[in-house]
Simulated assay, not measured.
Amino acid sequence: MNLHLLADAAPPVPESLMAMSDFLTSAIDWMTCGGMILCTGWIVVHVAKFMWGNSNGAGDPGQLGRIAPALIGLVVLGSVQLLVSSLLGDRGAEPHDAPTENPLAPPLPVPAAPAPDEPMNSTPFAAVGVVIAAFLVLGALGLIALRARNQIVDRRAAAEDREKDWHTARTIFDHTRSKFADYLADPYAIFERPILDDHTDTFTAAFLTALADAEALHTETVPRTAHRIDTFRTAATTLAAAWTAADRHARTVGMAVLTRDQRKTLKTIEGALAIALDESAPAGEREAAMRTVTRLSQELPMPLNTDRIADLLTLSLENAQRKALTI
């Protein structure tokens, strides 16, 4: 009977082997925890960088793709950690110091104890939960990336529309200002539309006011706000309309009704002006012709501002002197 009991007894497990097993499982548990912390930090950092860039209008949806390896690693490490935790729990439940039986002692009657219920292993359910949570996180990040992409596309489209509106307004502004510059550069235009030099005229004053307003809003680069662009476009449109009205009014008024003597005076002024602007004529003769233009202009029914013509003559004389010095 004693031999039968010795044959059925299981060989004892060495304590060193059990300690090594406990050390390995504990080390694996700690490493998986550390890996999960690193993966979580990687995900948090890249999501934060993406959200920051998106708030500044420079978000890149492809940046979220960098967190996919971390999510996969998080799922794998979570499964390993759950498995190791279950093994540690089972190992802790195993008795290490079981009382040894004396094979020579007679067996003592032991009352039958009810068999304890074995705890249900929840490791598979936890692993499934981790996988489902990972897929939910992936889906949420995908929705965030899609929304961010749509916002970026909308911002770019809005920026293109703003740039197009600004270029349209800039074209209107430059075209109108070019027409006014052509009038100022033409010395004969003052005898056709003299009222454009009269700042007390209603149409001329309205045009000059619109020109000052548009120039105050004009910029060399595209403004960032749509309101600023709309304001400049409105000012440029107002400027173009004001120039059209002032130019039409000036052409309609012209030099008013001239008598026969005044028409002869106007012809004399035009001839003297041609001599004053002739760069091949002597300087003294050109200056005398300019004085004639200024004197005769006072005899016309419309007041003329000949200062601009005198400035053109002065500039022309200075250019002629510089050319003579270089020869």
Rank of each mutant, 00 (worst) to 15 (best):
R263P: 01
I269S: 04
N54M: 10
A212T: 11
A185Q: 11
R260M: 05
A140S: 07
D278M: 05
E270R: 13
P187Q: 11
F207P: 01
Q63V: 08
L266G: 04
L184E: 14
A245M: 03
K267M: 11
L141V: 05
G35Q: 14
A289K: 00
A9M: 05
N54T: 09
H167L: 15
T221G: 10
S86Y: 08
A158I: 03
E279L: 13
P119Y: 02
P11C: 07
P12F: 00
F207N: 04
D117N: 07
E299C: 04
T234M: 07
I269L: 03
G284E: 14
D29W: 07
L87N: 15
S316C: 00
D247P: 02
T238H: 07
A134R: 02
L317Y: 00
P12S: 10
V257H: 00
S122F: 09
A112S: 07
P187D: 11
M36P: 06
H218V: 01
G78M: 01
T326C: 06
L74P: 04
L24G: 04
P103V: 05
K164G: 09
A226E: 14
I43W: 03
A320E: 10
P12Y: 00
G89T: 12
A133N: 07
A112G: 03
A19H: 01
T326D: 13
D197A: 12
V110T: 07
L6D: 00
L82G: 14
D8C: 06
L83H: 13
T326W: 09
H249A: 01
